[in-house]
Simulated scan of single mutants.
Amino acid sequence: MRGWETGVPRQNEPLERCCALTREVRPVSQLIRFVAGPDGRVVADLRRRLPGRGVWVTATRDCVAEAQKRKVFARGFKDAAVRVEGDLAAEVDALLERAALNAVSLARKAGEVVSGFAKVEAALRGGDPVIGLIQASDGGDDGTGKLAAIARARFADAGGCRIVRTFESTQLDLALGRSNVIHAALLAGRAAKNALDRIADLERFRAGFNEASHGGVSDAVIQD
Results as ranks from 00 to 15, higher is better:
64 V>F: 09
124 L>I: 00
73 F>W: 07
119 K>L: 04
96 L>T: 01
78 K>H: 03
95 L>V: 12
87 D>S: 06
60 T>K: 11
125 R>D: 04
178 R>W: 09
103 A>E: 06
183 H>N: 08
80 A>F: 05
85 E>W: 08
201 D>W: 10
106 L>M: 06
197 D>F: 04
59 A>K: 13
200 A>F: 07
154 R>V: 02
125 R>H: 03
153 A>D: 05
199 I>H: 07
142 D>M: 15
173 D>K: 04
119 K>C: 01
70 R>F: 01
136 A>D: 06
66 E>G: 04
191 A>S: 04
174 L>E: 15
172 L>D: 03
103 A>C: 03
70 R>W: 10
87 D>G: 06
103 A>N: 03
148 A>Q: 05
75 R>Q: 07
86 G>T: 10
63 C>N: 15
199 I>S: 12
61 R>M: 14
113 V>H: 04
83 R>H: 08
89 A>N: 10
133 L>F: 10
91 E>K: 14
123 A>Y: 00
136 A>F: 03
88 L>K: 08
134 I>Y: 05
81 A>V: 00
62 D>E: 15
197 D>A: 06
144 T>Q: 14
67 A>N: 11
185 A>I: 07
122 A>R: 12
167 F>K: 05
62 D>M: 12
158 A>W: 13
64 V>Y: 12
179 S>N: 14
103 A>T: 03
112 E>K: 03
161 C>P: 02
109 K>S: 14
121 E>R: 14
201 D>K: 12
67 A>Q: 07
144 T>K: 08
105 S>K: 09
149 A>H: 08
96 L>V: 04
173 D>A: 05
147 L>K: 00
196 L>W: 05
135 Q>L: 14
107 A>E: 05
141 D>N: 12
120 V>S: 01
147 L>A: 09
81 A>T: 11
142 D>V: 15
172 L>Q: 06
99 A>T: 04
110 A>F: 01
136 A>V: 00
146 K>F: 14
131 I>T: 07
100 A>H: 09
149 A>I: 01
59 A>P: 08
75 R>P: 06
